[in-house]
Design a protein around this nucleic acid. Structure first.
Lengths: 253, 253
DNA sequence: CGCGGGGCTTAACGCAGGTTAGTGGCACAG
DNA sequence: CTGTGCCACTAACCTGCGTTAAGCCCCGCG
């Protein structure tokens, strides 16, 4: 049970250390495990859900599709990420979440979260914090798609994904599994698949990065970051110490 | 006092009706009023802040600048919006907020928010909800910049801004104040100022929209929305009814 | 073992939107 | 009333990226 909760706990502790009590409470409310094959939707736009899904394994993405089929991938989800804290507060899901690779999830029921938030205000804050970090990433993506060239965009995305996977222990040295097709990269970066290919070749020739068989290898991390203009601040991965005093465990002073 | 808090209360009540008690508490924690001239930064990247700023009047924006000067506007802030709930939970600000027109703000101190969140868990939820709505808008912007043509983008932006201003009572019939230059529109939509101008002319010729002297007039709302592929769902403006049960006022059941 | 489909790669060509370089209007300072 | 500077607007030209259309490899399936 706790093993399953570990990746979530690890992430939330980037915000503030949790007490044993809080960790146990988190672990206890994690429910049934599900598996989804690659390409399957985990949560669909407009759908009601039974609870909040926690990604245990695999890579997923948020996306939106326009009526004529144009698709934009809006975020990636890695192990430890929660799919839809938002349907808990927002009535409807305004986008879809799909598995990119085979994905394993655990469900946390609405009641369990409700209970959790009532008893453990620090967990509430930690969860809120995690949605704010997501938003911060989303904002950086606007900059990426809006202002950077194809080369910079791709480099930036690689830096970001690598940093995120590293933070959950899914990299080895300078490489990581990255189960994305060039089409999916294109839908992420708002480029055509052809141009993604051109750009990948260019990066390969420059000995920056190679990307083959769903394996990303970063040959020159410094050069890649500087080509991307990458600065990891916006990922908030480094043991955040909030300005505001941390709440005591009981709600009332 | 309450008059100042009104726009914030109105917004939060889109999530769930507040009790008199909660409204009073909100009103009470609103502090000093400040004025900023157009173009001035309200909150700067990396800066520590004294508290959370509430926009009372005027239009502001979030933006990021790349080292070489390319700028991307990431969000607009209208009266009732909070600038930086995030610095309360995230250590540092990862972007800047600037006034687009003369702006009036009120400060809510960190202590006041802290207090508020401890005593009124429903307010905590309402504030969290408001950050989730912001994120939802941010996501739609990725789609806008990534997938839509210049014409669609501009049309979509106009629909969005009009809907948001309408929700805070800042429109008259089919028109509203919109204190933006074409350069600012360009930085928002990731276009050049020249192309924004071309596109504006085209919309004017099509009798969809005119935009002169900081006044936006929408001549054909239906046509504009359909040209934009606009659907207001993602703005969550319509009296959200959360799936999860609303918490009672006391934290403990 | 042959066939079909998905993903990768390349080349040729076209276009949406960028860039540069103007003009004119208007507000405000001196 | 004359600079100065910002903003809107236009035209001419340019380019990064999209589109189309191949061909290739690999893998799973009949």
């Amino acid at each position: 049970m706790t093993a399953i909760a570990a990746c979530l706990i690890r992430k939330l502790e980037n915000f503030a250390p949790l007490t044993e009590d809080e960790k146990r409470a988190l672990a206890e409310c994690i429910g049934a495990v599900h598996r989804f094959p690659a390409r399957e939707d985990l949560v669909r736009e407009g759908e009601a859900t039974d609870g909040v899904k926690l990604i245990l394994e695999g890579l997923a993405c948020r996306y939106k599709v326009l009526p004529d089929g144009r698709r934009q991938i809006i975020a990636y989800l890695v192990p430890g990420d929660l799919c839809d804290v938002r349907v808990f507060l927002l009535r409807r899901m305004d986008h879809t979440i799909a598995a990119l690779s085979p994905v394993e999830t655990a469900v946390i029921s609405h009641e369990a979260i409700d209970e959790l938030m009532q008893r453990y205000p620090r967990l509430t804050r930690a969860l809120w914090w995690s949605t704010l970090v997501e938003e911060s990433v989303t904002r950086e993506w606007i900059v990426n798609v809006g202002q950077r060239t194809a080369f910079e965009r791709l480099a930036h995305l690689f830096c970001e994904i690598f940093a995120r996977l590293q933070s959950v222990g899914l990299t080895q040295d300078n490489r990581c599994e990255l189960p994305l097709t060039q089409i999916e990269l294109a839908d992420t970066l708002a480029l055509s698949a052809v141009h993604v290919n051109r750009t990948l070749m260019e990066m390969r020739r420059a000995h920056l990065v190679s990307f083959h068989n769903r394996q990303l290898v970063i040959h020159d991390h410094a050069a890649l970051q500087s080509a991307a203009g990458f600065n990891a601040n916006y990922l908030h991965l480094d043991g955040e110490r909030p300005i505001a005093p941390v709440l005591t465990e009981r709600t009332r002073a």
